[in-house]
Design a protein around this nucleic acid. Structure first.
Length: 214
DNA sequence: TGCCAGGCCCTCTTTAGGGCCTT
């Protein structure tokens, strides 16, 4: 296995037929970007035919129509390709518990697997954008004036915006806490720390970083 | 338009309830 680079992550987003794979919902689109050293270096996007018609709500919500899905390949082949794209990298998603459930379910169907661990940009955002009116992806993109083409609820567009949000948060950690070599593990730790203890954690991390680089 | 679920978080909590976020 290749060494896992803490700075390289795959940022992904699923569009699905509903909220729960345990209730029979399937992924209908997977979008992802490979983020290396602060830059998007690769992209992945596939539509997936779930094998049944999606609801009018999902067609409206995502802009993905039944006719688009009719001509799409099945989820198993797309998932196998996606497993190769993930390689052994760690993963980021906005509300990662949702995307992880669908990724795990689709991987199981396709009889493949991945080895990286997830970090959640939404949980990190709740710690770092404490003044935001809410922590929906679209709200944060507008709040932070991140580049976007006005496309929301499509997998690749949402993955691209999540990646920009991720980079924005890394920049905040550098500016606000002088954490200039933020690792994936630091971000995971951030999301697992109670809100009231975040400041202490990040200042302590910065102290450790300074002492090890001095 | 938003229910279905699940995980996380906050608080008027921890022997619980409800809001947020994802489609």
């Amino acid at each position: 296995m290749k060494n896992r680079n803490a700075d390289t992550v795959v940022v992904l987003d699923y569009e699905t037929t509903g909220l729960s794979p345990d209730q029979g919902d399937r992924g209908i689109e997977i979008g992802a970007v490979l983020l290396e050293a602060g830059k998007v270096t690769d992209r992945f996007q596939r539509l997936m035919n779930p094998g049944f018609r999606v609801s009018a709500f999902i067609e409206d919500y995502t802009g993905i129509s039944n006719s688009m899905l009719h001509s799409a390949g099945n989820g198993e082949s797309a998932t196998r390709e996606f497993a190769e794209f993930i390689d052994n990298h760690n993963l980021v998603a906005h509300n990662a518990s949702f995307d992880r459930r669908f990724l795990d379910a689709e991987m199981q169907r396709a009889a493949c697997s991945y080895s990286g661990t997830f970090a959640c940009s939404m949980l990190a955002a709740r710690r770092l954008y404490t003044d935001a009116p809410n922590h929906q992806l679209g709200t944060l993109v507008h709040l932070r004036q991140l580049d976007n083409e006005g496309v929301f609820h499509r997998a690749l567009a949402d993955a691209e915006m999540t990646a920009l949000l991720w980079l924005d948060m890394l920049e905040i950690l550098g500016e606000r806490y002088q954490l200039n070599q933020t690792t994936f593990g630091t971000m995971q730790q951030l999301t697992r720390t109670a809100k009231g203890a975040v400041e202490k954690l990040l200042h302590r991390q910065a102290d450790v970083q300074r002492s090890t680089t001095a």
